[in-house]
Amino acid sequence: MSFINYASREISCKIVYYGPGLCGKTTNLQYIYAKTNPEAKGKMISLATETDRTLFFDFLPLALGQIRGLKTRFQLYTVPGQVFYDASRKLILKGVDGVVFVADSQIDRLEANIESLDNLRSNLFEQGYDLDKLPYVIQYNKRDLPNVASVEELSELLNPNRVPEFSAVAPMGQGVFDTLKAVAKQVLVELRKGG
């Protein structure tokens, strides 16, 4: 649910990074944070365990600039990927405007990707959303690792509707901004339609 404030001429949209545990959701946000101009970003918040696993969410506010005199802000959230944090994941999806599914390209994580994508679909459904109608992109992360499935295979498995998809190596930044731009653009196009 985007938020428009005519008094301060601002619009805010919420983008959620979803995916299985250790797929690199937080790393995406960390890279964006590191590479964004200080004036365009707020503080990044990570509610994580002592071993740096996301406990509740990561949060990164970005101010991209103005469109027709309206300040455009994006609030990026990640969900905790571990299976048992499902209650938290549901909460973070509330009010979402766009979704990035970060898939782990390693062959032994294929099952985890499918499970997480099913979980995304059903958690969105519970909130009254349909993934097929939301701004949505997929990122195939960890392309630099040796035991990865091919992009074609991942696409076949995870992207039957052919939404925009990107190969990524998140710690190096490869594909990170392409992914963000693609989902942000879809969100803005959706707003143009009238939300």
Binding site: I4, I67, R192, G194
Partner: peptide, 20 residues
């Protein structure tokens, strides 16, 4: 029941591209 159109109704693809 929004009376006015979306403030984004008029934006172009170019406006969006400029942001990025």
């Amino acid at each position: 029941n929004p009376g006015a159109d979306s403030p984004f109704a008029e934006i172009s693809d170019e406006d969006i591209d400029i942001l990025f």
